[in-house]
Amino acid sequence: MPDYCSGGWSGRLRQVLLPCWPAGWLVTELGRQPWTIFGMLRTAESVSSMPLSWVITSCCGVIVIYGLVFGFGLRHFLRYASGPLPQGSDVVVTAIPTST
């Protein structure tokens, strides 16, 4: 299996951008509670009343589901991107009518 994080500028770009996805998600999720951050609601009032085991289970479930979706999507994308370009009759060219 080829190493997708090496080789030229695109490999270095992937290594830099890969941590940005979870960082952006973290910033988005933290931004969902501005009323707590700006002092309009106390932190104790914004805590869930569910048992800790339910909170941990639901968080782990979301992480597993997101991880599976991301993993399968990334695997599909990398396989598609590393495949050969279509040649000859495999390429379908459709004429787009333009108004003249």
Results as ranks from 00 to 15, higher is better:
residue 100 T to A: 15
residue 10 S to Q: 09
residue 93 V to I: 14
residue 57 T to E: 05
residue 30 L to F: 08
residue 78 L to Q: 13
residue 90 D to T: 03
residue 39 G to V: 01
residue 85 L to E: 14
residue 64 V to S: 06
residue 5 C to P: 00
residue 98 T to G: 12
residue 34 P to V: 04
residue 94 T to R: 15
residue 90 D to Q: 04
residue 80 Y to T: 11
residue 79 R to G: 10
residue 99 S to G: 15
residue 55 V to L: 01
residue 91 V to W: 07
residue 18 L to M: 08
residue 23 A to F: 15
residue 43 T to L: 05
residue 61 G to F: 00
residue 10 S to Y: 09
residue 19 P to R: 05
residue 82 S to P: 05
residue 54 W to F: 08
residue 69 V to R: 01
residue 80 Y to L: 03
residue 35 W to L: 11
residue 22 P to V: 02
residue 26 L to Y: 11
residue 98 T to W: 08
residue 68 L to Q: 02
residue 87 Q to A: 06
residue 36 T to V: 10
residue 24 G to S: 06
residue 50 M to A: 15
residue 10 S to E: 10
residue 39 G to H: 03
residue 40 M to T: 04
residue 37 I to R: 15
residue 100 T to V: 15
residue 7 G to K: 01
residue 86 P to Y: 02
residue 37 I to M: 14
residue 48 S to Y: 07
residue 10 S to F: 11
residue 61 G to S: 00
residue 54 W to S: 06
residue 52 L to I: 00
residue 83 G to P: 02
residue 97 P to T: 01
residue 32 R to A: 13
residue 58 S to L: 06
residue 75 R to D: 11
residue 81 A to R: 12
residue 47 V to F: 05
residue 61 G to I: 05
residue 74 L to W: 08
residue 87 Q to L: 08
residue 43 T to F: 09
residue 72 F to Y: 12
residue 87 Q to G: 09
residue 32 R to W: 08
residue 56 I to V: 14
residue 52 L to T: 03
residue 29 E to W: 05
residue 47 V to A: 12
residue 41 L to I: 10
residue 57 T to S: 01
residue 67 G to C: 02
residue 6 S to A: 15
residue 66 Y to I: 03
residue 35 W to A: 13
residue 85 L to T: 13
residue 91 V to R: 08
residue 81 A to Q: 10
residue 24 G to K: 06
residue 65 I to F: 06
residue 57 T to Q: 02
residue 23 A to M: 15
residue 19 P to T: 07
residue 23 A to C: 13
residue 36 T to A: 11
residue 11 G to S: 00
residue 85 L to P: 11
residue 100 T to D: 15
residue 85 L to M: 14
residue 16 V to K: 10
residue 79 R to T: 09
residue 100 T to E: 15
residue 97 P to D: 02
residue 65 I to A: 03
residue 69 V to F: 09
residue 43 T to H: 06
residue 24 G to M: 03
residue 68 L to H: 00
residue 82 S to E: 13
residue 15 Q to L: 07
residue 99 S to K: 15
residue 17 L to D: 05
residue 25 W to Q: 07
residue 55 V to E: 04
residue 20 C to L: 15
residue 70 F to L: 09
residue 92 V to N: 11
residue 44 A to H: 00
residue 83 G to T: 03
residue 25 W to E: 13
residue 56 I to Y: 10
residue 15 Q to W: 04
residue 46 S to E: 06
residue 91 V to H: 02
residue 100 T to Y: 15
residue 85 L to F: 14
residue 58 S to A: 08
residue 1 M to L: 00
residue 20 C to N: 04
residue 69 V to I: 14
